[in-house]
């Protein structure tokens, strides 16, 4: 059972205090978007064995959504950060690259 630190309230919350929200950094495609863009937005999800970016909500705490970078294979957590970001912060990218030299990047 994971522990993730909520970047808003600083609580090291265990998984039962959180709700998962799937892949992070998805871009919304609304009316006027192509079928392909909409399909990718709606259905295409990464499922990596390794570095992954996820949405979590501190639902039994401050109620805020946040994002987490972690390794799905070893459960190592590289960092959590606010949801109001369109791509992972540089310091977290650096940390991942240092620990996972073979990592291909988040895109």
């Amino acid at each position: 059972m994971l522990i993730l630190e909520c970047p808003y309230c600083g609580v090291k919350a265990e998984e039962t205090e959180l709700s998962p929200g799937g892949e992070a950094h998805l871009k919304r495609f609304g009316p006027g978007s192509s079928d392909e863009d909409f399909e990718n937005y709606m259905f295409a999800r990464k499922n990596p064995k390794g570095v992954h970016f996820e949405r979590w909500r501190h639902s039994y705490g401050c109620g805020k959504w946040f994002l987490a970078a972690r390794c799905t294979a070893t459960l190592e957590v590289f960092g959590t950060y606010p949801a109001q970001t369109t791509e992972p912060p540089a310091d977290i990218i650096d940390k991942i690259k240092a620990k996972r030299p073979d990592w291909k990047g988040y895109k």
């Binding site: 709700s19 929200g21 949405r55 909500r57 639902s59 109620g63 805020k64 959504w65 949801a83 109001q84």
Partner: peptide
Amino acid sequence: HAWMEDWLQCEWW
């Protein structure tokens, strides 16, 4: 309520 907060926090912040 969670649905509303999701959009307000993560898309239209």
